[in-house]
């Protein structure tokens, strides 16, 4: 079909129709397998479906939600030094117009160096 021609990507190919068909087929297979090996003692809407909170008193439902800035807390904490470095470079949100100009002039100088340096090579 004219619209579903496979695309050559340089090192392979891509056809979304084949992918979608395969994805659907694999999803159905996974569903069937999970239905066959599913826990038989599971009862919907009973106490067994409630979360186990290690005996702690359950917070109000609204407070249970992990807020956006807390998500990937560990990942972001491990990158703290990187963000401090960015802040020191004045590349983050705390930069002011003076920093904008400094970076503009710096970039201009580097590009000149590359262009004129390349001329000498």
């Amino acid at each position: 079909m004219i619209f579903t021609t496979t695309i050559q990507t340089g090192a392979g190919y891509w056809n979304p129709i084949i992918w979608l068909f395969s994805f659907g087929l694999i999803s159905i297979l996974i569903y069937i397998i999970f239905t066959l090996i599913a826990e038989k003692s599971y009862k919907k809407d009973t106490e067994q479906t409630l979360p186990f909170l290690s005996g702690n008193i359950e917070e109000r439902e609204e407070k249970l939600h992990v807020k956006a800035s807390n998500l990937y807390w560990g990942f972001k904490t491990s990158l703290e030094d990187y963000y401090k470095f960015i802040s020191k470079l004045r590349l983050g949100s705390d930069a002011i117009i003076n920093d904008y100009f400094t970076w503009f002039i710096f970039t201009l100088a580097v590009i000149f160096l590359i262009i004129f340096g390349g001329m000498l090579l």
């Binding site: 503009f104 970039t107 262009i115």
Partner: peptide, 26 residues
Amino acid sequence: DKLALGLFITALALKIGSVPMHFWVP
């Protein structure tokens, strides 16, 4: 010509918000 090229690239890189001249974009 090379001087002009450097100016063109830097000016347009600022306009497209390329790092490290991205500050105006957010």
